[in-house]
Structure formats: structure tokens, C-alpha cells
Amino acid sequence: MHAAITLTVNGNEHRISVDTRASVLDVLREDLGLTGSKKGCDHGQCGACTVLLDGRRANACLALAVAHDGAEIVTVEGLADGGRLSPVQEAFIERDAFQCGYCTPGQLCSATAVLDEAGRGWPSAVTADLASDPVLDDAEIRERMSGNLCRCGAYMGIVAAVRDAAARSGDTAARRADA
């Protein structure tokens, strides 16, 4: 069975007919040709498929496309602003925060969401003071990125890159963590 849906992906509207069993990840990769998001475990456990779905990070392998008719999706291909990399992408390159690169698209989308969540003052499970904005120290970053696995073990570079990107984007919580 197929259904007609509309998705806005990386700022471009797509009206497509999809199999009602298809995940957002399958639609992105197979129907729209956006292969940046990876199919890792296909069970929502590794984070390789992480995208921004209506402004929040989501495992695209677990989201049914038909349930997200009208959604706005940002994939790794949409993080850059034209030819200019995002602060997160720049920091990942500078900190060598990847090895094989398979998990990198999901890590980048998740890190982008981490900066947004912390910037909005959203606490995590390790936020010490719930009455103030979270401080993006290493423990906070690790907790917030914990849904994204790197089988190569590039975690030190990933944490450093997220910290650098937060400082680069002017996040006051990151500046306090560096003090």
C-alpha cells in the first residue's frame, strides 16, 4: 500500500508516494537519493541515521515516513549553508572527530541538536543545576551524544569538536565550561 506525502528536506519540498511501511531513512536514501544518513543497526540503537525532524533529532530508521507527512527534515547534506560548513562540521574536521566516517553524519546531526537543546536551556540527565542553563562540559556533551555510537572510538575528538562548536557559535554555556 502506498500513500502520498509531502516532506520538506533540507529546505526543498518533495511530494512523493511512499510505501506505508517505509521509514524516513529508507525514503531519504532510496526515494530522494540522500545517502548521507546511514543505515547502521536499523533498530534505533546506534544513531548512524540521526536527522533533525521538525527541529529535533530523531532516529530516521524508526520513524515511519507516512507518520511525518508535512515534516521538515534536515540531513547531514543540509547542515552546511551553501558552500560554507556549519560550525559543527568545521569543528569535526579540525578535531579529527571521525575515523571511518560511517557514523559521522549522525554524529553531526546529533551535535547540531545538542547545541540547540543546550542553547534553549534544556537539561539532560547529568545537568547539575536544573534552575540554570546547562553547562556544556565534557560530561554534559557525552550524555547528550550518548545515543550515537562510534565503532572506531573517535569519542575524544567528537566531544572536543562539540565543545569547540558550542564556543564558536557563541554558546554562553560552553564559554562557562571553558572557564
Rank of each mutant, 00 (worst) to 15 (best):
A167D: 11
V9I: 11
A91R: 05
V135K: 11
T35Y: 05
G70Y: 07
I16W: 05
E90W: 10
A179M: 12
T75I: 06
A177G: 09
D138G: 04
V135A: 02
K38L: 11
G82C: 03
C109T: 07
D96Q: 11
L34Q: 07
V18G: 08
E77D: 12
G106S: 08
C109D: 01
R29H: 07
N12L: 15
Q45Y: 00
A160Q: 14
A111V: 00
R151N: 12
L53W: 05
R144A: 07
M156T: 13
Y155S: 04
S169Q: 13
R163A: 15
I16D: 01
L53G: 04
R151I: 13
T6H: 06
E13A: 15
H68F: 11
T172F: 03
V126A: 00
C46H: 09
D137Q: 07
Q45K: 10
C100H: 05
T6G: 08
H68Q: 15
A71H: 11
K39G: 02
N59W: 10
E13Q: 14
V114K: 07
D116P: 02
E90I: 15
Q107R: 08
S37F: 04
T112K: 01
H2M: 11
A80P: 10
E30M: 03
L115E: 06
N12Q: 15
D137K: 05
C46T: 13
E140H: 10
S110P: 08
S17K: 14
A4N: 07
G121I: 04
E94N: 14
E94M: 13
L136S: 02
I73R: 00
V27Q: 05
T172H: 14
R29A: 03
S132V: 12
I5S: 02
D81P: 06
D96T: 00
I73V: 12
A160Y: 06
R163E: 09
V159W: 10
L130C: 08
C103E: 09
L108C: 12
L115P: 03
V24D: 02
L149N: 02
D178Y: 09
A65M: 03
L32F: 11
T112A: 02
P105I: 01
S169W: 03
N12V: 15
A128V: 08
C100F: 07
D69H: 09
A139E: 14
D133F: 04
V126D: 00
H43E: 09
N10L: 12
L53Q: 10
S86M: 06
C41E: 00
A91G: 13
D54F: 09
G78H: 03
E94S: 14
